[in-house]
Amino acid sequence: MNLSALITPKNLVTAAVLIVLGLMPVLTTVFDQPFYLDIATRIVILAVAAASLNLILGFGGMISFGHAAFVGIGAYAVGIPIYYEYYSGFLHFPLAIAVSALFALVTGAISLRTKGVHFIMITMAFSQMIFFLFLSLEEYGGDDGLLIWSDSELFDGLALDDPSTFYYVCFVSLVGVLLLLHRIVNSRFGRVIRGAKSNEKRMSALGYPTYRYRLVAYVISGALCGYAGALMGNFTNFISPDMMGWGRSGELIFMVVLGGSGSIIGPVYGVLSFLLLEEFIPDVMDLFADGAGVYWHLPFGIILLLVVLFVRGGISGFLNRLTKR
């Protein structure tokens, strides 16, 4: 493989995105715009969640309409121990991963017996159950949500309440998750998952227990989303059942599709564009007419529609087509 083959539009964009994301704490300090570090942090955390969802959605063909539940579980796994004054991140993060993996195992074992639209609906049903469960928990705030008074404590010298430090923890997590997903997708396991997406009968005929493979993929995806949730809990310092509503799950799916579900890096583009649109459409509209920003859902909805109608393969697919040309 020669070097020039690597210089494709997609790789250039990926490199640029990762470099800019990597430099965000520096850039926001230089321009004295700490708020944009907030946006960047949110982007990076949601990118972890979206990339995890993409493992089953893009590569496995399992459309989960309930992944926000895992993010919520992860966040509550930080919030509830802190409520009882257990501050150690060595408790929070493993707990977030373990509980969401367990939830994924139980719900996945049932959900994966169904296919197609039934799978979409049953995953939504499970996430709604969790949503209403937390709504009913008066002790942890119910609908009012739970304020997280402290950040998870890790090593001395790694203070998560410092925005730049926290950002780098998230950024390194994202890079780690992307590398992990890359390895999974390209392993034998990943090939079975991908094969089962396009032709499950063939994979079964070849002797692969596809149900079990899919379940493992579902659990990995849920656990990683739970980890993203634990980061989210530390970031927002506030959690409420609202984080796990079906609308949030829908947003996660949209981020994946917008970025391109066929690629590892796609969801990162998706989250990036989604949050930047969400942030700046109202601003741009306000420039034209003061107060028009509250109607930002209109152009946003139109963009969403146009992407579905005309942009196959999302941003990543678009970049790939540039390469092939």
Partner: peptide, 18 residues
Amino acid sequence: HLDHVLATFGLILIFDTG
């Protein structure tokens, strides 16, 4: 189905804001 969900989600936003 994925495209259906997303496109009609977009429609919801358009109708609501309309």
